[in-house]
Design a protein around this nucleic acid. Structure first.
Length: 557
RNA sequence: UGGGCUGUCGCCAAGCGGUAAGGCACUGGAUUUUGAUUCCAGCAUACCUAGGUUCGAAUCCUAGCAGCCCAGCCA
């Protein structure tokens, strides 16, 4: 083992142990979302963990809809889930599974428990059941229905199944221990009456199994070896194991828990994300500011960046909060090496090159990637009028300012060095145009007089430029932990999370660019056309992430 | 105050009795036709606290402290 080997996380260690001592011959995991909402960053980690683990150890991973509660679920979500998993780069084993595929088996096992005197139909109301359950510090007491005979329970359960009872009238409970310090073991409900039609099974059932009853047995049916879930299910593990031990299941899966992913400056709770969508604080589940997989995809994040981020954050049982800068680093790292460069002026200021003939147009060569020649080159038209960024010109400035200043020189990226001679202003004193001169023979070389340019700025040829709309996204919340404590996360929404810029000037090459290509607009950031709104006639670019800007930071003082 | 889990740099995170990896962030400096990238350097005498065991403890023991989760016929 070399010293550069990445240390294993605790789950990988368990898997390797199980593999080496023969406890399992092939790793089989599963990603089990409930189809009641869109997947988000937190799910991305679970997907990465479950599918990644299987991939790394030569195993397989199932995709299973945990659809035991028809009241909250919808087919729309089962479709989005599949799209998101595949987009992240993973493929599940066989067909998509549903917990509802096992309703018949689960029902048969419920009968088995009844027949073995381990389950009973309880007529206590929800309120009564809560009282009987006891509290965190007081033991519960047995339900008066706990000792019904097998025959009685069988008959009652059949009536539940056939729809003879109203919702809430009774429930099937498993007989464990009302005095257990673990409340999950105080005779939990395993079947409840819900007269709702199910997105997969229609109206076949009016009783549905609970999560606890369905999950482990589904794992057993599918031959899952490592059932990975989040920390809040730790207390459920004894129950998970109880079912596996008390039912004639075909396998003995094991549950392991890791801490869910939390990222600062954002919220990842289906409830809150749904609220943002329902109350129209954002544009929908795929709003580019949303931490949903659909949102991040539209924003322009890459699957690889998301996977790398999950890996960077690690797998432990510590409930921490990962800094969003780690996510930003992951996407910048990927895009820096993989995004071709282009130029686009976001807030245009016209520069007229006085000594450049109005009739002339030449082409200069631009490198599509400064560190990778394989990206090739492209041609850029160059003529008398060009656009530069308003921020890149000042009438006067200190020596820190490495851009265009009146009477001083600056290099136009991939083109000439120019020298500003005059600022044209409107009545209000706003600079509306700059006059400048091209320094002769500076294409690819320093000026003959030895007076070098102070810096390099991007530009776009005015005559050939293409207008476009650019959407600048920033974090959705201004607070590090918008949903912490008793805070109302809506109070911390960033009013500038979306800034729309119109009339931006893109280099011609972008007019017929591939819609899925992420570009680096030099000196600006990484951009991708909006999948929804961008058309050849009206280009719309989303900013995935800005470039790091150490100057802007230090200049704020 | 019952049970379960967790506490190592600002944030993640290695470490598993032999004298504190790495990443993010940050700070210097070098290179640069992107104030980007890259590079190089710096960044915990210290591991929740207090005792103890040991030649030696972040790692073992004891006692505390702090945080998170559990009283849905949600998942």
């Amino acid at each position: 083992m070399s010293e550069t080997t990445k240390p294993l996380n605790f789950i990988e260690r368990i898997v390797e142990d199980d593999l080496s001592n023969g406890k399992v011959t092939q790793v089989h995991t599963r990603f089990p979302p409930e189809p009641n909402g869109y997947l988000h960053l937190g799910h991305a980690k679970s997907i990465w963990l479950n599918f990644g683990l299987a991939q790394r150890y030569g195993g397989v991973c199932n995709l299973r809809m945990d659809d035991t509660n028809p009241a909250k679920e919808d087919e729309e979500y089962v479709e989005s889930i599949q799209r998101d998993v595949q987009w992240l780069g993973y493929q599940w084993e066989g067909k998509v599974r549903y917990a509802s595929d096992y309703f018949d088996q689960l029902y048969a096992w419920a009968l088995y428990l009844i027949n073995h005197g381990k389950a009973y139909v309880c007529d206590l109301s929800a309120e009564e059941m809560r009282q009987y359950r006891g509290t965190l510090t007081e033991v519960g007491k047995d339900s008066p229905y706990r000792n019904r005979t097998v025959e009685e329970n069988l008959a009652l359960f059949e009536k539940m199944r056939s729809g003879e009872f109203e919702e809430g009238a009774c429930a099937l409970r498993v007989k464990i221990d009302m005095a257990s310090p673990n409340i999950n073991l105080r005779d939990p409900v395993i079947y409840r009456i819900k007269k709702a039609s199910h997105h997969q099974t229609g109206d076949k059932w009016c009783i549905y199994p609970s999560y606890d009853y369905a999950h482990g047995q589904s794992d057993a049916i599918e031959g899952i070896t490592h059932s990975i879930c989040t920390l809040e299910f730790e207390d459920h593990r004894p129950l998970y194991e109880w079912f596996i031990a008390n039912l004639p299941v075909p396998a003995t899966p094991h549950q392991y828990e890791f801490s869910r992913l939390n990222v600062n400056y954002t919220v990842t709770s289906k409830r809150k994300l749904k609220q943002l969508v329902d109350e129209k604080h954002v544009d929908g589940w795929d709003d580019p500011r949303m931490p949903t997989i659909a949102g991040m995809r539209r924003r322009g994040f890459t699957p690889k960046a998301l996977r790398d981020f999950c890996e960077m954050a690690g797998v432990t049982k510590v409930e921490g909060v990962v800094d969003i800068s780690m996510l930003e680093h992951a996407i910048r790292e990927d895009l820096n090496t993989n995004a071709p460069r282009a130029m686009c002026v976001l807030q245009p200021l016209k520069v007229v090159l006085l000594n450049y003939p109005d009739t002339k147009t030449e082409t200069v060569l631009g490198h599509n990637h400064p560190q990778n020649e394989a990206f090739g080159t492209r041609t850029l038209p160059f003529s008398r009028e060009i656009w530069i960024e308003q921020d890149d010109f000042r009438e006067e400035a200190n020596k820190q300012f490495k851009r265009l200043v009146l009477g001083k020189r600056v290099r136009l990226r991939s083109a000439y060095i120019i020298e500003a001679v005059k600022a044209i202003k409107d009545e209000q004193g706003n600079i509306v145009e700059v006059h400048a001169n091209v320094i002769e023979d500076t294409l690819g070389k320093d000026p003959a007089d030895g007076v070098k340019a102070k810096g390099v700025i991007h530009w776009v040829d005015a005559r050939s430029s293409v207008d476009c709309e650019v959407r600048l996204y920033d974090r959705l919340f201004t607070d590090v932990a918008p949903d912490a404590g008793g805070k109302n996360f809506l109070d911390y929404m960033n009013p500038n999370s979306l800034v729309i810029l119109r009339g931006c000037k893109a280099e011609v090459n972008l007019a017929h660019s591939d819609k899925d290509t992420r570009y680096q607009f030099e000196r600006q950031g990484y951009f991708i056309q909006d999948a929804q709104d961008s058309t050849p006639d009206h280009l719309v670019f989303n900013r995935v992430i800005s470039l790091k800007d150490t100057w802007e930071k230090s200049a704020e003082a």
